[in-house]
Structure formats: structure tokens, C-alpha cells
Design a protein around this nucleic acid. Sequence first.
DNA 1: GTTTTTGCAAAGTATTTGCAAATGG
DNA 2: CCATTTGCAAATACTTTGCAAAAAC
Lengths: 129, 129
Amino acid sequence: MATLKYSRQRESIKENLMHRRDHPTADMIYTDIRKIYPNISLGTVYRNLALLSDLGEIRKLTVDGGADRFDGNISPHNHFTCRRCGAVLDLDMEDISRIKQSAEQRFHGVIESYSVNFYGLCENCTEKS
Amino acid sequence: MATLKYSRQRESIKENLMHRRDHPTADMIYTDIRKIYPNISLGTVYRNLALLSDLGEIRKLTVDGGADRFDGNISPHNHFTCRRCGAVLDLDMEDISRIKQSAEQRFHGVIESYSVNFYGLCENCTEKS
DNA sequence: GTTTTTGCAAAGTATTTGCAAATGG
DNA sequence: CCATTTGCAAATACTTTGCAAAAAC
């Protein structure tokens, strides 16, 4: 049955994710939440991130190099990862969802989702080049 | 100066990658190469894959869930990953490289590359649903 | 009271690295 | 010879998991 029960840890994790725009790793969230719940464990953070992601309440981002990132913004949008500082940023760009239809055209199977990641140097790191 | 020296292990790894279309993980390549060089170590496989990837002779693919994949085909193309069997397939689809310009339009930084991954069920797994 | 969630620690993957020996040029 | 590469093993990074206690309902 797996009825879902409330937990303040989970609530706090979601809350944390909703109020930041930096696409943190599980560990970054853990560090942050510990200021409120000093006894929370990293395992609990991972468990709840997986659960929230399965529920579709948050989004998990797999980017090149390093740990997975998490995003409280589930509306369709794409990301940029800076190869120098590692920052993961939202990209403000026109809708490209037609690439899904484009991929489906000659594909024999079911395409359920897709993810687009851009890489390069962010504004900050470009200046410091 | 880091002058590049020949190594049959590296040659064999590249050769292996060039003759398969299944986007293997480092470990899959390791298993295969050991039939030819039984003493090769997994570390050597990882080192050479990283080197070849840095040289631009092969491509490293980071996909959701699990180990990185490697592709001997460096011409621009996109991939599909099956959530059931884990297979990573090439997608035969129209050119979508304009999404890069689209992303650059309002972005203050440098976009050097991008990767597009589609997810769902492959033909085989769709039938068995 | 029963079920879910937690904290802790240990285990499980995936990948990298230090070092002495082997190989390449 | 000198520089690079290798094999091996240990180390690291990230994530999952077993279990008894705590919290939710």
C-alpha cells in the first residue's frame, strides 16, 4: 500500500529546494538542512530526494561530471553547466519541445522524456578567463 | 610536455569502441579487451577512455542512472536510453543543432557544447510491456 | 498498535590515483 | 636512457541499504 506519511525532514528538503535556484547536490541540501535538523542523515536526504523525484514534485538532473543535482522547478526548462566553476544554471530560451516529435519520427519505441544540457563557461568564468 | 606515446592497450580500446554500436561502459570494454590482453587493468581502461575523450577521438556519454557510456562515433548525433533494459541507442533524427543558437541568444557566457538524451522504452521493451 | 520514516553505519557502485615496473621513442 | 604507460591496489566520490528506534496516523 505504501501510504505516504508526513515527515518534517521531507517537508524541509522540499522547502529548501523551492527556495533556491542553484540546483544543489544531495550533499549541499544536507549541509543546509542540518542547520534546522542537526541530526538529519545524508541517507534520509537521498531517500527523500528520490521519493520526491518519483512523485514528480522535484526534478533530478544528471549532468556531466560529479553528483546529481536537484531542481524544485518542475516546469519544462533546460540547463547550462559551467565547466570551470561547476555551476548549473537555468537557461532562458525558446521552447524546443518539438525535438521530441522529431526524435519520435523514425524511432520504434516510446519516448517518454528528454533532457538537454548545455556546457561551456558561465558569465562569471568568462570574465575571469 | 606530455608527448603521447603509443600503447597497444589504448589502440585496442579505441579499436573496440570503433567496432561496436552499443555505447559500452568502461567495464564492458574492460571485459572485452581482457580477451586480447588478459592482464589489462580496469584503471588503464578508465585512463585511456579519459585520454581519448580529451583528445576528441571518442565521446563520453553521461546518462541518467549508472555508469558513463562511451561512443566511438564522434559525429554529432543524439541518444536514447531505455529505462527498462538500459540500452543506449543512436537516434536517427533531423539536425537540431539550432538549439545551440537558441540557447546562446539570451545567455551571458560561452556555450561550447550540448547533449540531448531521450528516455523511454526501446522497441524490444515496448513489445514485452 | 501498525506502518512509515529516521539515523546510523556498513555496503555497494563507479571512478581516480600513487607507485614501482614495463614499455616506447 | 628518459618519458610515458601499465598493473595493481588502495583511495575516493557518490549513493543505496539493513536494521532497530522514533514518529506519524
